[in-house]
Design a protein around this nucleic acid. Structure first.
Length: 574
RNA sequence: GGUCCCGUGGUGAAGUCUGGAGUUCACGCCGGCCUGUCAAGCCGGAGGUCGCGGGUUCAAGUCCCGUCGGGACCGCCA
């Protein structure tokens, strides 16, 4: 139907007769003898000069045949890739008339209510931004797949109808028609299948896998999302990081034409200490500063005996942040679990702070020195348990200092040595698994499993980019004795383990190789590479925060006879 | 489950704090004029349940209560 794509018509084609197809992006009519039609397809826009009486409206679908020619002197359009030429002497075929679109099909739609964009997503997708994002996503996808294949990974598909397991995220359930009352679950990840592929001798598995979790949606979370999922046998942590890292850097290079530097590493403890987050954004400073030792003998009650006292310095913020905002920061700190927030403004006149009078000269000068505070800086201090102090200041750090996601540079970082257990279950009093219960403990800490579980590190690691968690993985336990000890710490005895994980662990007895793996969140990776701060912008048909699709109106009520067939009955609303 | 913000012709906004006629601006749409424009220009026109329901008031887009929808965040996401 066509000889050229609109965006590809150029000076090389001058004199040629071409046929292009596309949508009317804009038209400019100059009476009965002259009109300009900007025709758009996925490659861009080209100006066509048509007779004035052709009935052509916005978004009509046209086939245009004409002759490419240089534009007359002084009429070239620098803002258009094809702006040096135009298609003249056009004959126009209207392939489909179109109603006026509900919103402008150009950059102005960036300001349009997202519900309206999603209701008419097929129109939204015509826009350059959406086309660019979809293509970037496809390029990242292709690069990841190519990288994995070249590294010897085998692409294996795993089922979408899987057994329900009580662990982890809430699952979507699918009724089993042939067995009323029984259900499949949609996989929250291919976790158990990929580990069993290792038992099955696949050695190196990968999949660009769809995962489904029935948890509340966020800017970086959808019910359905994609992961580059992988698992490897006979490997240690370095082998996994190397494989994942080169795939991700290959993809980043494919997306932006520039290969990021090697990915640096930081331990979980250092990330918490310095950035107050297990997903540190390394693009900016404002690091947390250790102050605990300054107050070993303090007379200030709020600081006395605190496990950790830390501070951050917000350069030049003393004048900008008023009392009102400081109160809000204090509220925020309390919401996050801190007992309070101490602020200090360092000015030419000295120190302004509600607690200055409780602190000694040495303490004040110590704070100022450690935080390297200059006149005009605002310092925020928290004294609490170590974890709380770190997390609260880490959140305030990003609240106050974080650049927009599209602002470079890209700072990839591995966060390693996550704790094996995090926190304590309120009911059982037992520690809770940090990653999942099959995660390998750090070899140096194995003896602490029984004596000091909360200080056991694990061979679990995250990949972080500009403060977003891109993915996580671990080396898995493959020996039954070690697995038994970890289960014991979690309060799971042999009977319980067999009941809950038997289908998964029994195969290991037939010969599980040492193995480990990783999963990269594809939507997040693509969003950041595309400069979007919301993964919906890189998903063709995303759902709203309440899980609805304004285009199809899913989810919908189901007819009673269909439910009957599945052996289901809907309970009346309570 | 919770906190905060938003909802006004097809689209984006102003109007809401401090109640007084559906008022205004830009884009789009319809009609007319126009032979070199380019997010064309000029002239004219149409288009509204101010998300929905209730309340206060002589009077509600505006104040109060509820509800629905959207967004950001907390919880949740082993």
């Amino acid at each position: 139907m066509r000889t050229h794509l609109c965006g590809h018509v150029g000076s090389d084609d001058i004199g040629a007769t071409v046929t292009v197809c596309g949508w009317v992006a804009r038209r400019r009519e100059h009476g009965e003898h002259l009109a300009f039609v900007d025709l758009r397809d996925n490659s861009g826009v080209v100006q066509c000069v048509v007779d004035g009486d052709v009935d052509v409206r916005s978004e009509y679908v046209l086939q245009i045949t004409g002759t490419v020619r240089q534009r007359p002197e002084g009429t070239t359009n620098e803002n258009l890739a094809t702006g040096a030429v135009e298609i003249g002497d056009c004959s126009v075929t209207v392939l489909r008339r179109a109603d006026p679109p509900p919103f402008p099909v150009d950059a102005r739609a960036d300001e349009v209510d997202e519900t309206i964009r999603l209701r008419h997503r097929y129109i939204d997708l015509r826009r350059e931004r959406m086309q660019r994002n979809l293509r970037l996503r496809a390029a990242v996808n292709a690069a990841l797949r190519s990288s994995m294949v070249s590294q010897g990974f085998v692409e294996v598909e795993t089922p979408m109808l899987v057994p329900s397991t009580p662990e982890g995220a809430r699952e979507f359930l699918v009724p089993a028609r042939r067995e009323p009352g029984s259900f499949y679950a949609l996989p929250q990840s291919p976790q158990l299948f990929k580990q069993l592929l290792m038992v099955g001798g696949v050695d190196r598995y990968f999949q660009i896998a769809r995962c489904l979790r029935d948890e509340d949606l966020r800017a970086d979370r959808q019910y359905e999302f994609m992961q580059l999922d992988l698992e490897m046998s006979f490997v240690n942590q370095d082998d996994v990081l190397e494989a994942v890292g080169s795939a991700v850097l290959d993809a980043a290079e494919a997306a932006n034409g520039e290969r990021p530097p090697e990915i640096e590493r930081i331990t979980w403890r250092e990330a918490m200490d310095r950035y107050g987050s297990d997903k540190p954004d390394l693009r900016f400073g404002m690091e947390l500063v250790e102050l605990t030792d300054l107050f070993a003998a303090t007379g200030f009650g709020a600081f006395a005996g605190a496990e950790a006292i830390k501070g951050i310095s917000v350069a030049g913020a003393a004048a900008d942040i008023g009392r009102n905002q400081l109160d809000r920061l204090t509220d925020r700190a309390k919401q996050l679990g801190a007992k309070g927030l101490v602020w200090m403004k360092f000015t030419d006149d000295g120190i302004e702070s509600p607690v200055a009078k409780f602190l000694s000269e040495d303490e004040l000068s110590g704070i100022r020195g450690r935080l390297d505070a200059r006149s005009g800086d605002l310092c925020l201090l928290v004294a609490d348990e170590w974890m709380t102090t770190c997390e609260v200041l880490g959140t305030l750090r990003t609240d106050l200092g974080r650049p927009p996601v599209h602002q470079g540079p890209y700072r990839y970082v591995w966060v390693v040595e996550f704790p094996l257990f995090v926190g304590v279950d309120g009911q059982s009093g037992r520690p809770k698994p940090g990653h999942h219960p099959f995660t390998m403990p750090h070899p140096d800490d194995v003896d602490l499993i029984e004596t000091d579980p909360l200080n056991v590190r694990s061979i679990a690691y995250d990949l972080v980019l500009n403060g977003w968690e891109l993915g996580s993985g671990s080396i898995r336990i493959h020996e039954p004795e070690l697995q038994r000890r970890v289960f014991a710490a979690l309060g799971i005895d042999d009977t319980e383990a067999a009941r809950r994980f038997g289908f998964f662990l029994k195969p290991f007895d037939y010969g599980a190789p040492p193995h480990g793996g990783f999963a990269v969140g594809l939507d997040r990776l693509v969003a950041i590479l595309a400069g979007e701060d919301n993964i919906r912008e890189v998903i063709a048909y995303p759902k709203t925060q309440s899980g609805a699709d304004p285009m199809t109106d899913a989810p919908l009520a189901i007819a009673p006879d269909v439910l009957e067939d599945l052996g289901l009955r809907v309970a009346p609303p309570s």
